Simulated scan of single mutants.
Amino acid sequence: MNQHVLAPPVALLLPGQGAQYRRMGAALHGYDRVFTEVMDEFLELLGADGERLRELWLTGEPADGVHDGLNAQPLLFGVAYAAAKSLEHRGLRPAVLLGHSIGELCAATLAGVWDLPAAARILAARSSSLGKAPRGGMLAVAAAPDTVEPLIPAECARAGVAVGAVNGAAQTVLAGPEAELAATDAVLKAKGMTTRAVRTAQPFHSPAMAEAARVFQEAIAAEQRNSPAIPLVSSLTAEPVTEQQALDPGFWASQMSRPVLFWPALQALDRRGAHTYVEVGPGKGLAAAARRLPTVLEGSSRVVSTLPSERGDTVATWESALAALASAGHLAG
């Protein structure tokens, strides 16, 4: 039988803040022609800031520079977008897109909600809007949100500490201002919970980002927006993005101050049937979540990672992903 018919449709998964690491995807620059051209175009569109980001990305110095949202977010976007366009050049045609945090803006760009020059301006505005945000952070907790949320001290919740992401059945991320997040961490540790700081200097997806989201919305409103040409599932609502939502600047901006419902969105997508889940971007965090889905566990869906975790071999992982996608009939020729 024709494996092109048998291959389940592709769902692209696009990672967000926390997946970044030094020189993520940089080994593909100069190795993969399309990746290189697209990444160069994106960085050029960012102007002087793009030159600074290029230096940081390719050299990996300063070592901790990539973890600040001012740097991590545009680089996460660029690496994922360039990798996705390289796969598209090879014939990959995703049936649906699902992004996590900044990955949702990448998904919108791939779907044609706005073009790459508009995306670069939107990303620049997003970086500028971070000046309206307090110093803060994010904290991964190995427990369900219903377990974690009641344990946030009332004074910390009033200051803006809140659930910032749901990445798995027992994978919750809190976000908020620095001091209050540290106090919450101490309470959770005292309760015997396992916690880990997410690498970021901003309290993304918490109420503390409300003013930054307002500034960001104004920038999105200045750009032309289109109905998506590829279906999107939102990690803001855990449902398909409607045409009305796609055209609404407030919809896209509000994800800065509202939680990322990635796991519920991934579950909703999986309930629609088997997929080839392809994580396009650094790390394997979204792929790890996808491997816990029912259709993957039963063998009707499969999971492919295109880039490695921090200590992995970038080119080897990329070539392995290309081979897997080609053997499943997802790539041309």
Rank of each mutant, 00 (worst) to 15 (best):
P207Y: 02
S301T: 12
Q202I: 05
V163E: 04
V260P: 09
V34D: 12
H67E: 14
F262N: 11
T36F: 11
I122L: 07
A159W: 10
P228D: 06
L322F: 06
F262H: 06
K132G: 05
F216R: 05
E88Q: 14
G281N: 03
T172C: 05
Q202M: 13
A63G: 12
A326R: 15
G168I: 00
V241S: 09
S257M: 12
T242A: 10
A229T: 14
S234W: 03
A162W: 01
E180C: 00
Q267V: 14
E51Q: 06
L58T: 11
A321F: 05
L236T: 13
V233C: 02
G176F: 12
L53E: 09
S305A: 14
F262A: 06
G164N: 12
G285K: 09
L105P: 07
Q245M: 05
Q244I: 00
N167Q: 10
P294D: 11
W57V: 14
T195A: 07
G329E: 03
G18D: 06
L56A: 10
R23P: 02
P9A: 11
L87I: 11
L130D: 10
T242P: 12
D146R: 14
P249M: 01
A222G: 05
P259V: 02
E298A: 08
L110G: 00
S327D: 15
Q217V: 08
G137S: 09
T59H: 04
G78M: 05
D32L: 06
L188W: 07
P249H: 02
F251M: 07
A83L: 08
S305P: 03
T147R: 13
R90V: 04
A143Q: 03
L139Q: 09
A179P: 03
L6P: 04
I230S: 07
E44Q: 08
A83M: 06
V141E: 08
H100E: 14
K85V: 13
A210S: 13
A253L: 04
M39W: 13
L232N: 12
G50T: 05
A119L: 01
